[in-house]
Design a binder for these strands. Structure first.
Lengths: 342, 342
DNA sequence: CACCTTTCTGCAATCGTTTGAACAAACACA
DNA sequence: TGTGTTTGTTCAAACGATTGCAGAAAGGTG
């Protein structure tokens, strides 16, 4: 391994000079700089990142914790896009991304703590936001820089990047109402996620505003799995009064919904309309193509990193939370060809 | 930040002793160990990873390069599964995962080189294997530990974890032949991938063995995109003699195939049967459900890390390449209800 | 020419660990 | 009691960089 000393020796200068050449110190003569750089080039010198970190107390790395397999939200195309946004922006800003995962629920804090206390990373991106996430409390306590993709109810001053999920869900519901639906159901996710909560709220708001009835038997919770959507359908469709349209928390779940409806012999959108969230690439290919709220997944990750690194580098934060715009993409699954009233 | 010296001072011992307590050195008295551990606990001491790495020349981190957006193979459920396998096994073996990405094609080598020369990671997992991948050449040259998910034609002694893609494709094709098909097409991926090449070979082998005709107009190359499958169909279906069955390089492409066929008014599997590769969760939900070769994606990632870390830790490699078993999952898309001959 | 700046480079301490070697104390044995 | 071994601990040098301070050389000024 070629070190700064080797370069120094060959160039006939001191290690300090080499170091200053590397970091473009102003008081290095052009000649010395050229000479040293030439030798670095020849030997293929790269500074040892560990040594650098040790003295600079900075790692140029951000950490992100892969949600455990149980957290099905991320077993999803959506996650790949998010990750790509995160990594791309990190790289562009000169940071690497360290991925960890907890092996068990109680280990989550341990995994994060390893990163934080070991000074392994300069900042952390938190993905999942449960309503009482202990990780948020921990990082807040430690005053360690982090950004939340999603939002926190308990802490107002943490950095957050989120959609306006209430509004998004409101828009989705409103769209169904505009299609003439009066009996609209909601297939939700795990109730401890803020996400589920927010989207439910937007749905309720739209119903209330339109003077439509909110029926608890038309609302069902589940996981971010196709099975959840599938099961929800056997439930809904056995009701004496069935909804004619559905807002679904996630595309994947919506796929299960579509399949359930198909198996039960219902046609979409003729018998029942569907709108969901995330707009993953496959939404377009579903049968029928799925209307979905595009939440700007890539941008979510991208922006989160950008504002985290601002925080890390001590730049002022202008805006918090940052809200990534959403957009309803209407496809066949929610276009009611013959508007029918119940 | 609490360091080893702080602990030493409080415990009334030398830093070396504390270090040896941490690393469970045998010649530390039980009493000292207890005392030191207690203080570490109280202060929430975690060793500084950078300092440790500096002296041990080991980072307990493996690197993996996120394929560029252009590499569509990984814009896919498949990638998430692979990543999960990688990260899970790394964590289990006490390693972190560093994610980088290249911002451009020519930067790929630079990105890897930053990891290698900066001694940022102990080993690298390479994902994509093009037929003449310069990264393989580079890592080989540097004698840096790495594992290839896929295989290399140029280098026999690199660590590889792969499916037997020739066999898998042979199996898929054989299955279609068993269903009575005699005119079988192949929708391939980019020709510079070994993967494409292998799967094509298995297809050809099965055809040859059954004495069936291989027609170049029934073979088309493309990207790992739905569009590719879609386009392939307008091509195939405009031929005077059309295939009655297709082997498709990837589920995503197959979705495009299904959609193309539907739009052109063909029924699957009645008019044309389809088998593809990867068996992503959504394959089951396609209309009709898609027959697919399960390549053990999670296990691919998992095993790659396992053998990479064996290499890193100097354990002997018993087997190379490691072949992950595949399995044909037959669903409706390839069950020909009325076996028809051309 | 003496003196003061400015410009460039080197010395040495430091970051938080690890680890071989030295050493002291305790113990075993004849 | 002297000698040898075992056990537990400390010393000090390293790992590969950075950086404040000091000093040398060069240039500017009266």
């Amino acid at each position: 391994m070629v070190t700064i000393k080797d370069i120094a020796k060959l160039a006939g200068v001191s290690p300090s000079t080499v170091s200053r050449v590397v970091s473009n110190h102003p008081r290095i003569s052009a000649e010395t700089s050229r000479k040293v750089k030439k030798i670095m080039e020849e030997l293929g010198y790269h500074p040892n990142v560990m040594a650098k970190s040790l003295v600079s107390k900075t790692t140029h790395t951000i950490g992100i914790m892969l949600p455990r397999p149980a957290e099905e939200l991320f077993r999803n195309d959506f996650f790949g896009e998010l990750l790509r946004g995160i990594v791309t922006q990190s790289t562009r800003m000169g940071y690497d991304v360290l991925l960890t995962t907890a092996t068990s629920e109680q280990d989550e804090l341990g995994a994060i703590s390893r990163l934080v206390r070991g000074r392994r990373v300069d900042g952390i991106v938190l993905l999942s936001s449960r309503r009482d996430d202990p990780l948020i409390a921990y990082l807040n306590e430690e005053k360690f820089p982090f950004v939340l993709i999603g939002r926190s109810e308990a802490y107002a001053d943490v950095l957050m990047v989120d959609n306006n999920n209430v509004q998004a869900s409101y828009d989705a519901t409103k769209h169904l109402i505009a299609q003439g639906h009066e009996r609209i159901g909601f297939v939700s996710g795990p109730p401890n996620l803020i996400l589920s909560h927010d989207r439910l709220k937007g749905y309720e708001k739209a119903l209330a505003e339109a003077g439509l009835e909110k029926r608890s038997e038309w609302i069902v919770e589940g996981e971010f799995l196709q099975e959840s959507g599938f099961r929800a359908m056997s439930l809904f469709m056995s009701l004496p009064e069935r909804p004619t349209a559905l807002v679904v928390i996630d595309d994947n779940v919506a796929f299960g919904v579509l399949r359930g409806l198909a198996e039960l012999g219902y046609r979409v959108p003729e018998d029942i309309s569907v709108v969901s969230f995330n707009n993953i690439p496959l939404a377009e290919l579903a049968t029928p193509p799925l209307s979905s709220i595009d939440i700007g997944t890539y941008q979510l990750g991208y922006t989160a990193v950008q504002s985290l690194l601002r925080l890390v580098q001590g730049e002022p934060i202008h805006q918090n939370p940052i809200v990534i715009p959403h957009r309803l993409v209407v496809r066949e699954s929610s276009i009611n060809p013959a508007l029918k009233r119940s």
